[in-house]
């Protein structure tokens, strides 16, 4: 028990926690940039799993063990599914062509038109920076009063009790939502049997 306590004290000391937070944060940020900017959609799917791993590390640091594990469990499988579907839907050759055309898109034009095109390309970046900055200002201007007491170690029990008592109605709604999503997804993805020719062609 001694070594456990010493290790625990060390890990929960503020400096170590801050350093660990920055390491995980930098990992998460760079991987998520990788997700949106990697040329290959399948690669970016695999990188997304890394992002979720880093985020579940953050959850562990925030003492939400249950959610960290649920995150790993759901997303490891869920994103694999996304990747598999992406594999089925993308043609490596057409992907390469798209990349080439994207690079040459504004090379023919000159002067003001090219500038405007660049601005148009920069619109998503502006929206993203603007939204981040607005949220950051909102966070910063508020003065939070953090509670010093720690999360209880058996917060799984607290979660379970809350889900079955106070939040039982939202819980039921969530399960109904999942059922509806399941049925809807099956209906949408089911191949239509009227045109067997197209189906076999795609297979």
């Amino acid at each position: 028990m001694d070594q456990y306590m010493i290790l625990k004290d060390y890990v929960s000391s503020a400096d170590a926690e801050t350093a660990l937070f920055y390491v995980i944060a930098i990992l998460a940020i760079s991987l998520s940039v990788g997700v949106i900017s990697d040329r290959n959609i399948i690669r970016s799917g695999f990188i997304l799993i890394g992002v979720f791993g880093a985020i579940s590390g953050l959850f562990l640091m925030l003492q939400a063990q249950f959610l960290a594990l649920a995150q790993v469990m759901i997303y490891a499988v869920g994103i694999t599914l996304v990747v598999v579907i992406a594999l089925m839907l993308t043609n490596p050759r057409s992907e390469r062509e798209a990349v080439i055309t994207e690079g040459d898109e504004f090379s023919q034009e000159t002067g003001a038109v090219q500038f405007i095109q660049r601005l148009q390309q920069g619109t998503p970046a502006f929206v993203a920076v603007f939204s981040f900055f607005t949220i950051y200002l909102a966070i910063r201007s508020e003065s939070w009063t953090p509670v010093t007491e720690k999360v209880s170690t058996d917060n799984v029990k607290v979660l379970g009790e809350a889900l079955t008592t106070v939040y039982s109605l939202p819980f039921e709604f969530a399960s109904v939502l999942l059922l509806a999503a399941l049925i809807g997804a099956i209906m949408l993805a089911k191949a239509e049997k009227r045109q067997p020719a197209i189906e076999s062609a795609e297979d």
């Binding site: 063990q65 594990l69 469990m73 490891a76 499988v77 170690t153």
Partner: peptide, 14 residues
């Protein structure tokens, strides 16, 4: 761990 079996299952899904 207090959530031992859940941890094992999460690791097994990787």
């Amino acid at each position: 761990l207090p959530t031992g079996i859940f941890y094992i299952l999460a690791a097994a899904s990787l």
